[in-house]
Every structure is written in C-alpha cells, then in structure tokens.
Computed example of a mutant assay.
Amino acid sequence: MIIKNKGMFLETLINNSISLLNDNQGFIYKMPVNNSIISIEDNIVTARLNKNYFCDYIGLWNGVYLEFEAKETEKEFFNLNNIKKNQLEKLLLVDKNSGCGFILIYFHLYEKLFLLNIRELKELKNKKIPFSYFQDNFLEINLNGINFDFNEIFNHLVSYTL
C-alpha cells in the first residue's frame, strides 16, 4: 500500500501544537529537508535528499535542549527499522549531553499518539513493537482535535531526564 503524503498528518498536528506554545517557556522549530536540486524540466523537479544532521524538530524548553523525530504507522505495530541510523545516533547524542531526545509515534488505525523516550528505545529487543505494548509501556499523548499540549510532553521528559 502506498500512503500519499506519508507523515503529513502528524507533522500538521505537531505544527498546530507548536503554534500554541508560550514563547516564555521555549520554542520548537521544524527542520527543513536538506536536498540538492538536480534538474527542473517541464515543471518536474528532480532532487537528491542529502543527509540531515538534525531530526525532524529541535527546540529549547525551560533551558533544556529538545530534538525529536515524528513517525506514523498504518499498521498494528511500529517497526523500529523506520528510524534511520543517523536519527538514532543523533537522539542518543542529545540524551548523552543532558538534552531530551524522543520520538512521537502516531497509530492511524487507533488514532493514538505516543511518546517514546530515546532511553526507552534502547531497551527494546524486538524490531516490531505492537500497539498493545505502546499502550502498556509508553506515554500516550492526549489529542485535542488538531493539536495537543506540549507542556504535558515536556514535563514528562524533563522529570524523566533530570
């Protein structure tokens, strides 16, 4: 099955939620995709994706550096192979340097969003993590229509990290 606009739902949800953040507490930015245009012909752009040095989003919240990836799945499980090696390495580096590295994972079948701290990811042995495991072991983010409260996430992460 080919998913059109893969990843755009969660990205829209995150961007809507970022717009509600109080600037006095912190900020989050969406990192642009790093690419090189190869050619433009008849309104068709051919480009090569370059290696990104950051994950999807970076930010600062109450003095704590944040970096995270946003992933979606149409299945009843999340495959850890969807996390690229450089993304994993970057999130581990952020954690090692007293920042908060995490992944937000959205399950379309259940319309549920979960937070997976990079420390928790290191503990997982299986590559395919079923939805039920997320329910039992990870923080579920309460969705409010087309956004959610980042304060809930950050309070959880900062207390977990520090």
Rank of each mutant, 00 (worst) to 15 (best):
M1C: 04
M1D: 05
I2P: 10
I2H: 09
K4G: 04
K6A: 06
G7F: 01
M8P: 03
F9A: 02
E11L: 03
E11K: 12
L13H: 04
I14A: 02
L21I: 13
N24H: 13
Q25C: 12
F27P: 09
F27E: 14
K30A: 13
M31Y: 10
P32D: 14
S36W: 08
S36L: 13
S36N: 14
I37V: 15
S39M: 02
D42V: 03
L49H: 01
L49C: 01
L60W: 01
W61M: 07
W61Q: 03
V64K: 10
A70Y: 03
E72N: 08
T73I: 00
E74I: 11
N79L: 07
L80S: 07
N82Y: 13
N82C: 08
I83H: 04
K84I: 05
K84F: 06
K85P: 06
N86H: 13
L88R: 14
L91G: 06
L91K: 11
L92I: 10
V94D: 02
G101D: 03
F107N: 00
H108M: 01
L113I: 02
L116M: 15
N117R: 11
N117L: 09
E123V: 10
L124T: 06
K125W: 09
K127S: 15
K127L: 13
I129F: 04
I129Q: 04
P130W: 00
P130C: 02
N137P: 10
F138T: 09
F138C: 10
N147Y: 15
D149V: 09
D149G: 03
I153S: 02
N155I: 05
V158H: 08
Y160L: 15
